[in-house]
Design a protein around this nucleic acid. Structure first.
Lengths: 134, 134
DNA sequence: TCAAAACATAGAGCTAACTCGAAGTCTATA
DNA sequence: TATAGACTTCGAGTTAGCTCTATGTTTTGA
């Protein structure tokens, strides 16, 4: 059983344009073709694309993901590189999580700031706050 | 006491180019100028820029941030809009955190995957795993 | 006081990641 | 069998967010 490009696009929540772009960039050498040229996506291809989406969401640029895909095609001799890469990605995501938590703190602070201001009817209530504002 | 554009750039970890670009895009109408035209950043301007950086890191595009800055200049009549905006940003960050945690789960899975494979000397050890691979 | 360094603007250039239009082929159904 | 719709490639166009170059002015320090 195989899937068409539009079925896969729907499933992974991206456009057929994006999928073809990924292919053009060398991210999908594993996808087979019908004699006519039509892409035939296997179930495992969809799983692989999910890993690609995962790497993308860690902030990894497509060119680097392409490098990883190439390693995958090279077999067991690149296991160490691939492991190291995932360790780096893990560190990157940890950093992003930390950043995002700091962001959340400030956003929460601002929510309270505006809640209090709305309650008072004016922003002046915060005139003597430590944190600057406009 | 005021700061020059390069001092602020250093402090906020961005380039003077970026700061001037933000200004051009209407993100810094509050920064005053010397008679010569040189920007004079106040302490409160730096705090405001930190809020801008915070909004940026929630994924908010610069044009929308500009809208927020404009609201700020309009005073108390826009308090409700600004509050709503921060509530939306909070929701956006919560969604991002959820996404990033899912990403982390998969990355962790892959770390274990490769650790096991390295240990075995081959990826074949995972031939019967549920999750697809290349 | 004068050269180097930092400031300014305007506008061109760059990069990533799509996004789309053109032109053609294949497939399914009335 | 014909026509609509989905598929293909190629290459141009788009957008955001800088980044840099050119040109000129201002500030700073030996």
């Amino acid at each position: 059983m195989t899937y068409s490009i539009s079925e896969v696009a729907k499933e992974l929540n991206l456009t057929v344009y994006a999928l073809r772009y990924y292919d053009k960039e060398g991210l999908m050498p594993f996808v087979e073709r019908a004699p006519s040229g039509t892409r035939l996506f296997k179930e495992s291809d969809i799983q692989s694309l999910k890993v690609i989406q995962c790497l993308k969401s860690t902030g990894m640029p497509i060119k680097e993901i392409k490098g990883f895909i190439a390693w995958c095609s090279e077999g067991d001799s690149t296991l160490q590189q691939r492991y190291n890469m995932f360790l780096e990605r893990k560190a990157a995501v940890e950093a992003q999580l930390e950043e995002l938590n700091k962001t959340m703190d400030l956003i929460n602070h601002k929510c309270e700031y505006y809640m209090t201001a709305l309650d008072a009817g004016t922003e002046d209530i915060h005139k003597n706050d430590k944190i600057g504002d406009f």
